[in-house]
Simulated assay, not measured.
Amino acid sequence: MNYKEQILKIIEDIFLEIPFIILTGCYQNYNIGNGYIPDIVIKYAYKNEEKRIVLEVKSQGEPRFIRDAINQILRYKEAFPNAYYMIAAPFISNTSANLCLNAGIGFLDLVGNVYINDDPLFIKKNVERNPLAEKRELRKLYSPKSERILRVLLDKGKKSWLTEELAEETNVSIGLVAKVKNVLLNEEWLESEYGGFSLIKPFDLLDEWSNNYHIEKSKKLNFYTMSSVREIENRLGDFLNKRNIPYAFTGQSAAARYAPMVRYKTTKLYIDSIEIVNALEVDLEIKQVESGANLHFLIPYDEGVLYGRQQFDGLFVVSQIQTYLDLIHDKARGEEAAVEILEQGIKKKW
């Protein structure tokens, strides 16, 4: 059964459940006039009246493709106004659904989302998540090197980029930048313009990324120290700075620099390698523990984690974007600190 046949089967099942109408025909590639041939035309009878629903079928349901389908439907309406119009796609997200509703157009997808408002029909079903594939296209954004691109776009605010320039800044291939750019354009989070492209919906992107980001990707080593957080942070910074070893504090340690009202009792930092942690264990007289840790070392899963790090009083901390990602799902008051950084820091760049 091909994709259009799946859509037709869904339509037939919907109409068979409605006792007061009769489905009289489903047609593929039906000429509605003026040379317009939409993907599917449905005819049904209500009392003595014949009604029609015209569907434009898309193979992808991202906002960019849905907007194209809406524009096509508006052209159909000029030639054939006496019909109800819908869009079908594998999955209709909330963003795509709102585009349809604002245009007065119905929709349906393969996972159960349906909206039909064609008097006397009113059918509305909503599936919050896509059980077929959790936004397969968006998953392309979450490889380590793809995430480097997201960090830079979010960190640099309204800057306009060229593909080659962004590839150089992130130390990834031009081809990968092009792929990520295409995904972001399809979601309408990125705008392509003369002379470059720029991020236009940073908080939609940040929200989507944070829901798919897992700090556990970085290996964590847990230690205990008798020193206070400020004392151990200063001793760590002194050791690492003298040896030019890349590092950055994160979690509440970073949040306290961006939002000084944050209070905390544990220290967390990204550091280059386990060998360096071993050297620190000896030099700073800290002890590795299985429970009760108050000092956490993270071995970064990718160098991009340290992109945009900032220095406060001689100590490096991760960027505001990375701090937000590391804290937003932290149950120990992390979400509160993350929101503070978002409101007081990140949003000011936009």
Rank of each mutant, 00 (worst) to 15 (best):
K4R: 12
K9H: 15
L16T: 05
L16W: 04
I42P: 11
L55A: 03
V57S: 05
Q60P: 04
Q60I: 14
I66Q: 02
A69L: 02
K77T: 13
Y85V: 09
S96M: 04
C100Y: 10
L101K: 15
L101G: 06
G106F: 06
D118T: 05
P120L: 02
F122D: 04
K125L: 13
E128F: 01
L132P: 00
R136P: 12
L138M: 11
Y142R: 07
S143D: 12
P144E: 08
I149Y: 03
I149V: 06
V152M: 06
L154T: 12
G157L: 03
K158H: 03
T163G: 10
E164P: 01
E165I: 02
E168Q: 10
E169H: 06
N171G: 09
L176V: 10
A178H: 13
K181H: 08
E188S: 09
L190Y: 05
F197W: 08
L199S: 14
L206R: 07
E208W: 13
Y224G: 03
M226A: 08
S228C: 05
S228R: 04
I232W: 03
Y247F: 13
A248P: 00
A248W: 02
A255R: 02
T266R: 13
L269W: 11
V282M: 03
L284G: 12
E285G: 14
I286W: 01
Q288W: 10
Q288Y: 12
V289A: 06
L295V: 05
P300C: 06
E303Y: 07
G304K: 03
L306I: 07
Q311V: 10
G314M: 01
F316Q: 04
Y324N: 06
L325N: 00
E336K: 15
E336M: 14
Q344E: 15
K348M: 02
